[in-house]
């Protein structure tokens, strides 16, 4: 099985510019059901290269084409409205790839979409997710992995690919790989994904990649200790060498100067290890730990 997306996922793409088209085509070629695109002025036309209809609104894509998932690829200034439109239109899942969304915009979106519930929002500033062999929504390279039983969740894109690749080389496949994104305010948190993996009968082990900043990894760690102590869980926290007060690429990857603590990689590692979770010092070690845990049976 898998979480969040599978064979029944039907995607409408909001933002059908060059990036949106490029990635939607790749997703479609993988077998994802891309059913429509939206554009405020191109409603009624056909999306070139994908051969699916373009609608003016997400609502039409839901009623006319049966879309149940939206992939948001519009530029940052329009992302808040795009997510809210998808929410109002009644899709089940919203995957916001766009980076650079203002934090106040996302704080409002979080209030409406996540706190009110009923709709899953992934991202923004995330690579999307893949359930190998079933569906790929977003920008994750699909050909470096294959179906399997490890669930992977991460704040980082390429770092996830690295671990996925190393697992694949050891013959280990993935149930679902979820990129939750590197922004301070995101819709789906570590814990949400880990709870879903725990409930998925075909995910037997979980690998996660955290980063400096925030405290979501710890929250997930406490839950893992209390609820799924017998499932193999391996992690890595990127940024042991990141100085305080400097943003490391991702908007959310910053250890606040004079903050309350718990935001550095070393502190997170210590806290997680206190929960009985193996935390590696680098991505290759994380992959190796997972391989060892699975080979032990």
């Amino acid at each position: 099985m898998s979480i969040f997306i599978d064979e029944s996922t039907k995607v409408v793409v909001q933002g059908i510019g060059s990036q949106g088209t490029f990635h939607a085509k790749r997703n479609q070629a993988y077998g994802t059901h891309v059913v429509a695109g939206t554009h405020p002025k191109k409603g009624g036309t056909t999306w070139e290269g994908l051969d699916v209809p373009v609608f003016t609104s997400v609502k039409e894509a839901v009623t006319e084409a049966g879309a149940n998932t939206s992939m948001v690829m519009v530029p940052a200034p329009f992302t808040k409205d795009a997510i809210l439109e998808a929410y109002e239109a009644g899709v089940e899942t919203i995957i916001a790839i766009t980076e650079g969304v203002p934090v106040h915009d996302m704080t409002e979106v979080y209030d409406t979409v996540v706190r009110r519930g009923g709709v899953r929002l992934l991202g923004p500033n995330c690579p999307g997710l893949i359930s190998p062999g079933k569906s790929n929504v977003g920008i994750i390279p699909a050909d470096i992995t294959f179906p399997g039983k490890v669930g992977l969740v991460s704040r980082s894109g390429t770092l996830t690919y690295q671990i996925m690749h190393e697992l694949a080389q050891a013959g280990i496949g993935i149930s679902t790989c979820v990129g939750i994104g590197g922004d301070p305010v995101i819709g789906t948190q570590f814990l949400d994904v880990i709870e879903a993996f725990a409930a998925d009968p075909e995910t037997d082990a979980i690998a996660f990649v955290g980063e400096i900043g925030g405290a979501e990894e710890q929250k997930a760690g406490a839950w893992i200790r209390d609820n799924i102590p017998d499932i193999p869980v391996v992690g890595y926290i990127a940024g042991f060498e990141a100085p305080e007060g400097k943003q490391m690429g991702h908007a959310g990857a910053i250890v606040k100067e004079g903050g309350e603590g718990g935001e550095s990689a070393a502190e997170k590692k210590e806290i997680l290890e206190g929960y009985g979770i193996s935390v590696a010092m680098n991505p290759s070690e994380a992959a190796r730990l997972m391989i060892e845990r699975l080979q032990q049976g």
């Binding site: 590197g182 980063e211 042991f240 490391m248 010092m281």
Partner: peptide, 28 residues
């Protein structure tokens, strides 16, 4: 390429006894 991978690179450099001079993400 990728903020997470670059952060991991700094970590691995330090674990091998060196120090990184910078963080740079060239993008996807």
């Amino acid at each position: 390429n990728g903020a997470g991978l670059v952060m991991a690179t700094l970590d691995v450099v330090a674990q091998n006894g060196g120090r990184a001079a910078n963080f740079l993400d060239v993008g996807g």
